[in-house]
Design a protein around this nucleic acid. Structure first.
Length: 551
RNA sequence: GGACGCGUAGCUCAAUUGGCAGAGCAUUCGACUCUUAAUCGACAGGUUGAAGGUUCGAUUCCUUCCGCGUCCA
């Protein structure tokens, strides 16, 4: 457990301190403390009252918190308690508490939990403070806290020890001027919110989404996380095994096919918010387990979903931040790291083909025409044009035409989609579960929406023709045979479900982690996931083959 | 998977051209009855991520490995 002799020594000293606290008659790990309010409640209730008002009332309170700062000066002392991310100062005088309790105060360390009872007043400098009449020891911190002002700066430690990050992180600020002699450094605009605030907002995001759908007649459900066919998306799954049934299973990559089975079953409006698992790389936008919202609505198509999307994102932004303006550091591309302001209520819509034309790089020569995407030769020459302009573009002459078009889109357009943008009409070849456009058989009624330069959601009019669905799965099997490990597997039971009749339905998935990144100004998905996946840490001693002995 | 960067005391950070590893906070001891990044005095705290190499001498240069970050695939 100990990382150094220093830590071990300090731990031992604090165990000794615990004994002394016990000798003062304090239980060492009491199971409760009778608070009258939380620290945030106390600040809200008394924060506006003047010193005179407080002096007249001497409002009695009992609160509890963790000691984040402590200043002892002879026969008196101050300490700062923290609870629920807010702080309140306490004032302890030797002549206001019992002898044992002042002895206890002198034995307190940074990080300890205590409860105090007394009355609220303001100090000479005006700070809201509790004049302590009685204090109780609650729990000891046996290990040292991170730097009391800077907190944890090391990103890795913040992820690995999120418990420390949550109560010590104060966010990042723009550096304005160097610290003056003996003073605190000047702080500018906040660049990153405190960790705790990010996760409080994440909870608000979930609450707002549930409010939105619950008030519109949707039913929230939970469908299998362990599936014998990992369907509903193009991704590699994690594999597991059920011993009693001797059954290979996959962790789900999407809930999609189960949710549409529910629509077949007459659950016309349904949503699920839950984890998906994809056995892929890790980046600032990818964690192997991530949270996805999927919702389905019978008798709706992708045009209806576009409207719902714009409404939902606007609603959630207002609920969470009180504004639709999001300040967000771009996570990738040429402008990576740049802070941008995005209005989540202002949307534009472009078809995929329009987006390719709009963001066609000048260096690549003549822009494609709208009608040129139907020709394999034309699209192949687009690839050559882009490559000769120095753009790295994967291309396989044997891959379906639609896949090439989708790759071109992702390569040249995605990073430009910073303002909320709906990209609609996708190639059939990359959309095995979407309904074909009636007038264009190679294109489907599907859209993705992009904010901040990355994909946040994906939606389509659901393919509900079982014959067509079977053919699409068969096309996917050919892709699999061609070497595409992410191609969809055949799901006979899903085709059978469609054969009972799926009404016309629109469905959509939205990445909750990415949406939370936008609403909290977080540059990495790891900043919005409490315990992101990291490689397990090796201890130095474990790597050494031969133990070295001093003797 | 590739390129680049980072790893120094518990925490936050220094260390000039390759020349005695240092400061603040925290800890320990002492002083202090309105402090608030409290203040003042004293002590202690290091295998510079790991292993190897070059050198009279390596935190610094080189190689490999480990972990993390960023960009790209």
């Amino acid at each position: 457990m100990f990382e150094s002799e220093f830590e071990e020594k300090l731990y031992g000293e604090r165990i000794e301190t615990l004994k002394k606290i016990s000798e003062l008659g304090q239980p060492l790990y009491p199971n409760t403390y009778p608070v009258t309010m939380t620290i945030p409640e106390a600040r809200a209730k008394f924060g506006a009252l003047s010193a005179e008002d407080l002096e007249a009332q001497k409002p009695p309170v009992a609160i509890a918190g963790r000691i984040m700062a402590i200043r002892l000066q002879g026969k008196t002392g101050f300490a700062t308690l923290q609870q629920n991310g807010e702080r309140l100062q306490i004032y302890v005088r030797k002549d206001a508490v019992s002898e044992e309790q002042f002895a206890l105060y002198k034995l307190l360390d940074l990080g300890d939990h205590i409860g105090v009872q007394g009355y609220i007043f303001r100090t000479r400098t005006g700070e809201l403070t509790i004049h302590v009449e009685s204090l109780s020891f609650l729990t000891k911190a046996l290990l040292p806290l991170p730097d009391k002002f800077s907190g944890l700066a090391d990103i890795e430690t913040r992820y690995r020890r999120r418990y420390l990050d949550l109560f010590t992180d104060t966010g990042d600020f723009e550096e304005l001027a160097p610290a003056e002699e003996g003073g605190a450094p000047q702080q500018g605009q906040r660049l990153r919110a405190p960790s705790r605030e990010v996760f409080v907002k994440r909870a608000k995001v979930l609450r707002a989404i549930r409010n939105y759908f619950d008030s519109r007649g949707y039913i929230e459900v939970e469908t299998p996380m362990m599936q014998s066919i990992a369907g509903g998306a193009a991704a590699r799954p994690f594999q597991t095994h059920h011993n009693a049934l001797d059954l290979d299973l996959y962790l789900r990559i999407a809930p999609e096919l189960y949710l549409k089975r529910l629509v077949v079953g007459g659950v016309d409006r349904v949503y699920e918010i839950n984890r998906n698992f994809r056995n892929e790389g890790i980046s600032t936008q990818h964690n192997p387990e991530f949270t996805m919202l999927e919702f389905y609505q019978a008798y709706a198509n992708y045009w209806d979903l576009m409207q719902i999307t714009e409404e939902l994102i606007t609603y959630v932004a207002n609920e969470v931040n009180g504004t639709t303006i999001a300040r967000f550091p771009l996570p990738k591309g040429k402008r990576a790291g740049q802070m941008v302001e995005i209005d989540l209520a202002k949307w534009r819509r472009l078809s995929m083909r329009e987006a390719i034309i709009t963001f066609w790089p000048e260096a690549a020569g003549a822009k494609p025409g709208m009608d040129s995407f139907a020709s394999r030769d034309a699209v192949a020459s687009f690839v050559q044009q882009l490559r000769s302009a120095g753009i790295d573009l994967p291309y396989d002459a044997k891959e379906p035409l639609g896949r090439t078009i989708a790759t071109i889109f992702e390569t040249i357009a995605e990073e430009h989609l910073v303002e909320p943008t709906i990209i609609y009409d996708f190639p059939l070849a990359v959309s095995p579960l979407s309904k074909v456009k009636p007038d264009e058989p190679e294109w489907v009624e599907r859209f993705e929406f992009y904010i901040g330069g990355f994909e946040v959601g994906n939606a389509f009019s659901e393919l509900n023709d079982p014959e067509d669905q079977r053919r699409r799965f068969e096309m996917q099997l050919e892709e699999k045979a061609r070497g595409d490990e992410e191609a969809h597997a055949m799901d006979e039971d899903y085709v059978r479900a469609l054969a009972y009749g799926l009404p016309p339905t629109g469905g959509e998935g939205i990445g909750i982690d990415r949406l939370t990144m936008l609403l909290t100004g977080s540059r990495s998905i790891r900043d919005v996931i409490l315990f992101p996946l990291l490689r397990p840490q090796q201890k130095h001693g474990e790597k050494q083959e031969h133990g070295e002995s001093a003797e």
